[in-house]
């Protein structure tokens, strides 16, 4: 009992995760800046931003539904943190594990998007409403390729559990190479989930101010931004486990190091991707997802089905 509380709250749960998320945000921003030939922020900038926001007054718009407006950010943060607890990090075993946890993790990572929608919708500002409708529209476009990309890897391992999935890939090293197209699809779709360029349509600054976040300020905005950071780490951890399942179950220190490197690699890929493209329009984004990402993901599924028949009897 006491032990699992420690796991949930301190390590690798909330406190570690939040600290790591802030570092990941720093790395993301620093790489983004260096790619643009700028100096970038100092290492404590994300923490300083959070402290500054936490110290500010919470302003709730008079017309909004105050309860929904306040609950949505906390709900989003909680679900993003929970998702992390189910992902095996440097062992094949996670803190909690059961059959079908891969689906649960994927849905827990979808909850923040829904919470952003609810928060934006109930703040009743026009910019927020447009932004939240956009985030929901976008959800239907990127969620399908993301799920297909990740689940194709699970399909090859023939399991719905992350524990069994990692055990399968440990038993069959180099099989993860087959999933690389799926990794590409999942990574690009992830940009939509994290609302980053080219898919930062729901919070497009020059169009709708900050989209669903427009009316938020102070602590609540701090939570929302923290949610995006935690989501980035949790989703990167999921991608790292599903697509790069190696270096697990070895010396804990070395394993932990490999895990950190894998996550930071994915974070830097995200930073690179958002540096080299412009923001798409919502119609172009949906077209892109359904016309390019989904077919590639389907091909990946097909490939894995064939491989399953050929290699694993």
């Amino acid at each position: 009992m006491f032990e699992s509380l420690f796991y949930i709250i301190v390590f690798p749960g909330m406190i570690f995760l939040i600290a790591f998320a802030l570092i990941a945000e720093f790395i993301d921003r620093k790489i983004y800046a260096r790619l643009q030939n700028r100096v970038g922020p100092p290492w404590f900038q994300p923490l300083a931003d959070f402290i500054k926001l936490a110290g500010k007054e919470d302003i709730v718009p008079a017309d909004s539904n105050a309860r929904m407006f306040k609950v949505a950010p906390i709900f989003a943060l909680a679900s993003a943190i929970t998702a992390f607890l189910y992902i095996p990090l440097w062992k094949t075993e996670a803190l909690f594990s059961f059959r079908g946890d891969i689906i649960v993790v994927l849905y827990l990572l979808t909850v923040p998007t829904l919470a952003f929608f609810i928060g934006g919708w109930y703040s009743t500002s026009l910019y927020s409403r447009i932004g939240s409708v956009r985030s929901l529209t976008q959800l239907f476009a990127y969620e399908v390729p993301l799920f297909m990309g990740i689940l194709s890897s699970a399909l090859l391992a023939d399991t719905w559990s992350l524990k069994e999935l990692s055990e399968f890939y440990m038993a069959h090293p180099w099989f993860w190479m087959f999933n690389l197209p799926g990794f590409g699809v999942a990574l690009v779709s992830l940009l939509g989930k994290l609302e980053k360029v080219p898919f930062d349509i729901p919070e497009a600054e020059t169009e709708i101010v900050a989209g669903g976040f427009t009316e938020y300020g102070g602590r609540l905005l701090g939570f929302l931004r923290m949610t995006l950071d935690v989501e980035m780490v949790a989703a990167s951890a999921l991608l790292a486990l599903v697509f790069f399942p190696f270096g697990l179950n070895i010396n804990p220190v070395l394993g932990f190091g490999i895990f950190i490197i894998k996550i930071l690699f994915i974070v830097s890929l995200i930073a690179l991707l958002r540096t080299v493209v412009a923001r798409l329009r919502i119609d172009q984004m949906i077209n892109f997802c359904w016309k390019f990402l989904v077919p590639v993901a389907l091909l990946q599924l097909l490939l894995n089905l064939i491989l399953k028949g050929l290699l694993l009897k």
Partner: peptide, 13 residues
């Protein structure tokens, strides 16, 4: 123009 279409890299360069 780069910034307006969300291409901040073009802006910086």
């Amino acid at each position: 123009a780069g910034h307006e279409i969300g291409f901040d890299t073009l802006l910086m360069y």
